[in-house]
Write a protein that binds this DNA or RNA. Structure first.
Lengths: 203, 203
DNA sequence: ACGAGCGTCACCCGAAAGCGTTACGCCCCG
DNA sequence: CGGGGCGTAACGCTTTCGGGTGACGCTCGT
């Protein structure tokens, strides 16, 4: 019985990670958490053999979570997930007890290899390394205007109505819509709204 | 400083309740939680003068949450929110320490009156009663087919594509779409997807 | 036995949406 | 200084949507 706990505040990234590690041989349980607080709260009742934790999270944040987790349970194994931006965060995390880290744009294969490795060797620690292809990805950054347009869509407003709401021409709304579709990789407004919810961009 | 904690797993119901009780005179803080676990976790740090809690929730569930909450803090005041289906749940909840309950189809006015009453009188307990108009509402019940179509929309599929996925004609998909729009009160597919997420019908 | 809800399909039609493209001013970064 | 992202706006064009309506068979509950 090998279990993995995935902790990320982005629902979409969480799902992606969950699916990816679920395919690692020997892993038969993957649980998820959306915050560091949740991990700490559930740890005693719901231990896992390996934790994958995002560095950047609202509330406690990945680094502090790892610190608290490892100090309460030194046998806990954590691999941090990070982006290029927060290398200092990784250093802190490793100093705080994380076994290593993975860039969020690591390939699925690299992710799986790292997880296998970490599970096979309890003493394993990852040497710092950088990985390439975008596989997990991070939340697209929409501009304030694009968010506003996306929110309008999520409330069932037409482009013309959104335009009236925001004092813009319908054509301008369409331009914002097209740009946010491209950023999100959405094929239409319904898809965009769904991705907005999954990325936590709208509520 | 009077605070109310609203606990419901449905984001939409949560928001509706939050807005409704925010208008009660004397209430100056309304916090929300989406699960019983969250309420228990935050209780010591984030106490409230009154808790409105849904009976039916994933995880702990309203009844067990009340039981634990009241046993840890006998001064906690809880009003359960329920639907016609789970009257037995209400009996259990009241036996477990809830001060009373409200049907989810209570009117906004009745909800506010009950909240005022509960806040004004610390010893107050609601006599069982039934209330009428649909104000808070419960999640619309979509059929399996309608959910499938809604999911298709949330993945950016066109009606024709959804039809191919489900081995249906595009016209049939449109019929399902029209019906689910009406049930959800959606004005278009983007709105429907948003409401689906808010009601927890799709992920 | 009847209506209601569901699943299926079809046709029409006007109104949106979505795409490509162009454009201009602004600001920031290299 | 130039390019890129952003905000704004416009035009044309094609596709899709959404609403209205009708229809038929099935099942369920009253």
């Amino acid at each position: 019985m090998t279990s993995i706990l995935v902790c990320d505040d982005s629902p979409l990234a969480r799902e992606t990670l969950r699916r990816a590690v679920a395919t690692v041989p020997g892993v038969d349980r993957v649980t998820t958490a959306s915050s560091g607080e949740e991990v700490l709260r559930r740890w005693t009742a719901d231990r896992a053999d390996l934790v994958l934790m995002d560095v950047r999270m609202p509330g406690l944040g990945g680094v502090e979570t790892v610190r608290r987790l490892v100090s309460s349970d030194p046998t806990a194994r954590v691999v941090m997930l990070t982006m290029a931006e927060d290398l200092d965060g990784v250093a802190l995390a490793v100093a705080s007890g994380a076994r290593g880290y993975l860039h969020k744009d690591a390939s699925r294969a690299e992710l799986r290899a790292t997880v296998s490795q970490a599970l096979a060797d309890p003493t394993w620690r990852l040497a710092p390394r950088r990985l390439r292809p975008a596989e997990v990805g991070s939340a697209p950054t929409l501009t304030a205007r694009e968010i506003q347009v996306l929110e309008g869509m999520s409330h069932g407003r037409s482009n013309a109505e959104i335009g009236r709401d925001l004092f813009l021409s319908e054509d301008t709304v369409k331009t914002h819509a097209r740009r946010l579709f491209k950023k999100l990789g959405a094929s239409d407004r319904a898809h965009a709204v769904a991705l907005g919810f999954r990325w936590g961009l709208v509520r």
